[in-house]
Design a protein around this nucleic acid. Structure first.
Lengths: 150, 150
DNA sequence: ACGCAACCATTGACAATGGCAACTATCGAT
DNA sequence: ATCGATAGTTGCCATTGTCAATGGTTGCGT
């Protein structure tokens, strides 16, 4: 016992931090979701929209992989966004199997509007002191880096 | 133009940070979800379980409020967890309308097991240097505080 | 004591998400 | 030419989540 008390304290810190994040994300998710609903779409649809950049169509499979979900799920999401007129299925030049998903003019506009709202209304975030924001940015980037490696 | 360039830079920082968090949480959520599924429950059910402490029953309405969702939704979640034997509906002493939800012996055990897994497997988090963890903890706590005030 | 509004939990109906299996069309390699 | 692999779609199912409506219960005002 009492081997490495700092180690134990650090493990405890991990635990507390994970719990807080788990808790906090649940709340944040609701905020994001309701922001999306104000614009007439849903959170998963917004995540799909997030992956699309102007002039850079992505194939269905690429979306499925990026969203880490089944391809059939993407079909449904694309259906809805296409009905709304925000994206369109294009045929790929070399392969008639693949469909490239591209933002429409309307979609670009909508995406920009949605995004400015979606990335701003976290008062809990904007209220942070500048130094904390910079630190947080650095930490989150480190976390994402270590995540994509696994 | 060129009014408060630092202000503009800070707004840009907010934007970048929000985007990263939005992106990162999507990934983290998948990890949590699959961890839950390994234990045979789902993420929303885990969130409900999170709210229950041994010896501290919570009424349905309290759960609905804490989860920020419709009461009818809670009914369904409680149904499933009760079927699994993790929780049970108790009648409240003073009011025959309310039902208190309490952890069973099995539920306590399960919750502990689930929790130790759920709060640990974020390698992107445990890999952070100690100082970053402490800073992150402080920041997240500040964010949660500012959130509950709104 | 009576009536009535408010409250708690549940139910039913509905849309959206997400996973799995089956299917069609297409490609690529042999 | 054939065969296995790949891309996207479809159907089916379980779960989540919201809304409206219901039954039972409470508490208050009169």
């Amino acid at each position: 016992m009492s081997v490495k008390p700092e180690g134990a304290r650090e493990a405890n810190l991990d635990h507390k931090l994970s719990t807080l994040l788990f808790e906090h994300f649940q709340v944040e998710r609701r905020n994001w979701s309701s922001a999306c609903h104000e614009h007439g779409i849903t959170l998963p649809q917004a995540h799909l929209l997030r992956l699309l950049r102007t002039g850079r169509p992505v194939k269905m499979n690429g979306l499925a992989e990026a969203l880490d979900c089944d391809a059939s799920n993407v079909t449904g999401l694309v259906d809805k966004l296409e009905t709304r007129g925000f994206i369109q299925r294009q045929s790929a030049p070399g392969d008639r199997r693949v469909k490239m998903i591209a933002l429409t003019k309307e979609g670009q506009l909508f995406r920009a509007k949605l995004w400015s709202q979606l990335t701003q209304p976290a008062p809990s975030l904007t209220a942070l002191p500048l130094a904390d924001k910079q630190t947080l940015l650095r930490i989150v980037q480190a976390m994402i880096r270590s995540e994509s490696k696994s």
